[in-house]
Amino acid sequence: MDTDRTASADPLDVTVEFLTPELRSELLKCWNEPQRRYHNPTHLRAVLRAVDALESDGESFDATAVRLAAWLHAAVCDPAGSENTEKSASMAERVLDPAAPIEEVARLVRLMGGHRVEAGDLNGAVLSDADLSVLGADPETYDAYAQDVRHEFAHVPGERFVAGRIAALEGLLERRSVFLTRAGRDMWEKQAHANLNRELGLLRVGVTGD
């Protein structure tokens, strides 16, 4: 159980079981790589804060496994490459202490490749909601996120990126709910729909030229 987590603490400094100082340093080097515009320490902080918020609102989950998975879920990030999620999961299997919940952490990291979480998977639901919590942020923060994603995938031609982005946003809006936990829905669902629909409208206007 973590004992030094407070609302004011930098999540990157908070103790997580099995996250040794050496491993923390190694992972922060990954998160600070120059090719990252969205999957950087700002995103990692946001995910960890969202995990804290879900925990504070009563969600039940394996806090150690979920927080370790948060640290590792985008440890490998090559926007022009492939299999980043699988490579991040393999990294988790390689760098974590044998006493850590390695199998569960790697499973959770792999889930983030498509956010396909089965009913009853509490750990997966919490990590998925935390990873997507930016969708329910204020409009300014959401717009910065969308711009950062476009910058991170600058190598993708405009029309191709827009088509993929539209498909991704439509997929999220077609779900019964964007967020899988009760707390996540309460905190972020309404704003997420407003943000997603607004961006989708702008993208469609750009495609049609209207």
Rank of each mutant, 00 (worst) to 15 (best):
residue 160 R to M: 13
residue 100 A to G: 07
residue 55 E to L: 04
residue 188 W to F: 04
residue 141 T to S: 15
residue 60 S to G: 00
residue 123 N to Y: 00
residue 24 R to C: 03
residue 164 G to L: 09
residue 28 L to A: 07
residue 170 E to M: 03
residue 86 E to T: 12
residue 59 E to S: 10
residue 116 R to T: 04
residue 193 H to Q: 11
residue 16 V to H: 01
residue 203 L to F: 10
residue 173 L to A: 03
residue 187 M to K: 14
residue 62 D to F: 04
residue 166 I to K: 05
residue 201 G to R: 06
residue 2 D to H: 14
residue 29 K to A: 15
residue 184 G to P: 01
residue 93 E to F: 07
residue 19 L to Q: 01
residue 75 A to K: 07
residue 102 I to N: 00
residue 198 R to Y: 03
residue 178 V to N: 05
residue 105 V to Y: 05
residue 55 E to F: 04
residue 68 L to F: 03
residue 60 S to K: 15
residue 121 D to N: 01
residue 198 R to S: 14
residue 160 R to T: 15
residue 51 V to I: 15
residue 7 A to M: 12
residue 44 L to P: 02
residue 140 E to A: 15
residue 14 V to Q: 12
residue 21 P to K: 11
residue 47 V to P: 08
residue 86 E to G: 15
residue 207 V to Q: 14
residue 196 L to R: 01
residue 163 A to C: 05
residue 40 N to I: 06
residue 39 H to V: 02
residue 49 R to C: 06
residue 95 V to K: 14
residue 135 L to V: 06
residue 75 A to S: 13
residue 76 V to P: 02
residue 54 L to E: 04
residue 175 R to W: 01
residue 29 K to W: 01
residue 99 A to T: 09
residue 62 D to V: 06
residue 165 R to Y: 00
residue 143 D to R: 14
residue 42 T to Q: 10
residue 1 M to H: 11
residue 43 H to E: 05
residue 65 A to K: 00
residue 177 S to N: 13
residue 130 A to Y: 07
residue 168 A to M: 11
residue 167 A to K: 11
residue 18 F to C: 05
residue 85 T to P: 07
residue 141 T to R: 15
residue 205 V to I: 10
residue 40 N to E: 12
residue 21 P to G: 12
residue 4 D to V: 09
residue 56 S to W: 07
residue 51 V to R: 05
residue 96 L to V: 09
residue 203 L to A: 10
residue 22 E to C: 06
residue 159 E to W: 01
residue 53 A to D: 11
residue 6 T to Y: 08
residue 193 H to P: 02
residue 155 H to W: 04
residue 203 L to E: 07
residue 155 H to C: 07
residue 47 V to E: 04
residue 54 L to A: 08
residue 9 A to D: 15
residue 156 V to H: 02
residue 30 C to S: 13
residue 79 P to N: 10
residue 150 R to S: 13
residue 177 S to A: 15
residue 175 R to P: 11
residue 151 H to A: 15
residue 136 G to Q: 04
residue 178 V to E: 02
residue 130 A to V: 08
residue 45 R to P: 00
residue 141 T to C: 11
residue 20 T to M: 13
residue 2 D to M: 15
residue 187 M to Y: 10
residue 127 L to R: 03
residue 2 D to E: 14
residue 45 R to C: 08
residue 7 A to Y: 08
residue 203 L to N: 12
residue 178 V to S: 07
residue 101 P to D: 09
residue 74 A to Q: 09
